[in-house]
């Protein structure tokens, strides 16, 4: 049985303090640029804010992980290198990286700082993971959300590093790190510019009958009836019509949230070292609610008590949730 860390999201310094107060063992965050995959307007940290946040987290016994988890376009590596240098100077506890060039730079320039392999690297086989460990000294891999728990258990035996799995949050996994759908419509790339469905390209239109359509770069990607729950305006979760399907349907995937609360004991038993909560783009209210609920649950399970799973299930109330591939490969 492992003693997993709880890895929590923060889009602002206030969210970081909220996460630490709610019981995060580590908080992950990024700078206000393309070096991380939540490059959203008004979100993220300046170097000064990160310095204060690292000091705050360390004073309370929590770690800060800096996400440098996008891919530099050819010849434009300076931004990523500078971000790594600043992060090292400010005393972050680990870098979360996807690109081999970025991993190589950090391994050479800042060998004392831990490297975590981002889910964006999509390393899902022992061979791939070992490659990163051997060449760049990666200490932890964040596994793509395509593996069952028995598969995670097997991988764990065959790799020399720690395992982190997502347990909660938005679920968008068109082969993590390799989705080009948003690029196709907006000209911006999730993997290189750090933003899927940039807000400047998103528009919501209300119609006379109370319905609302969401548009990305002028293309309608969904239409919600009056009172129907809406979702993120990402192409992967849009509803489309086709010549053979006149009713809008989810052509790629349904807008569900990942919620592994029921599988926590199995994941702990499988030896997972860290649980990740998605949502750097979300509010402090979300961070407070989700982090404190999972903190209680993990502590209960570790102490041999029954965790209050109902609380965790309620976190996704009103929205569809899934255990994704963690439960069964039948999940689409």
């Amino acid at each position: 049985m492992s003693n997993p860390e709880l890895i929590c999201p923060a889009g602002t310094p206030a969210a970081l303090r909220t996460a630490v107060d709610a019981g995060a063992d580590a908080v992950y965050c990024g700078f206000q640029d393309a070096t991380n995959a939540r490059n959203f307007p008004g979100l993220n940290f300046t170097p000064d804010e990160l310095r204060e946040s690292v000091a705050h987290a360390h004073a309370k016994g929590a770690k800060v992980l800096l996400a440098l988890n996008t891919y530099p376009p050819a010849g434009k590596v300076d931004l990523w290198r500078q971000a790594a240098d600043i992060g090292a100077r400010l005393g972050v506890d680990a870098f979360i990286v996807a690109d081999m060039g970025v991993a190589d730079y950090i391994a050479r320039s800042h060998p004392g700082i831990r490297l975590h392999l981002s889910v964006q690297a999509a390393a899902s086989s022992p061979e791939a993971i070992r490659y990163y460990c051997e060449h760049f000294g990666v200490k932890r891999v964040v596994l793509p959300r395509i593996l069952t728990i028995p598969e995670i258990r097997e991988i764990r035996k065959e790799i020399p590093c720690e395992i982190e799995t997502f347990i909660f949050g938005n679920h968008g996994l068109m082969v993590e790190g390799r989705c080009s759908l948003t690029n196709y419509l907006t000209g911006q790339s999730t993997n290189m510019d750090g933003v899927c469905s940039p807000a400047s390209d998103v528009e919501y239109a209300r119609h006379g009958d109370g319905s609302m359509s969401s548009q990305l770069a002028g293309f309608t990607i969904d239409c919600f009836g009056p009172g129907e729950k809406a979702g993120y305006p990402t192409i992967c979760k849009g509803r489309y019509t086709a010549p053979h399907r006149s009713e809008g349907y989810y052509a790629f995937e349904e807008p569900v949230s990942l919620n592994l609360s029921r599988l926590l004991p199995d994941l702990i038993d499988a030896g997972v070292h860290a649980f990740k909560i998605e949502g750097r783009q979300r509010s402090k209210s979300y961070v407070r609610g989700v982090v404190s609920a999972f903190r209680r649950a993990v502590d209960d399970i570790r102490a041999g008590r029954q965790a209050n799973i109902a609380d965790l299930v309620a976190l996704t109330e009103g929205q569809k949730q899934t255990q994704g591939a963690f439960e069964t490969k039948k999940w689409r």
């Binding site: 008004g42 979100l43 807000a199 400047s200 919600f224 809406a230």
Partner: peptide, 19 residues
């Protein structure tokens, strides 16, 4: 998402204000 809040116009402006 629950449709209790409605936004119109420049989505980036709303996202920035929210953040």
């Amino acid at each position: 998402f629950s449709r209790d809040l409605e936004v119109a116009g420049d989505t980036e402006a709303v996202v920035r204000l929210r953040n």
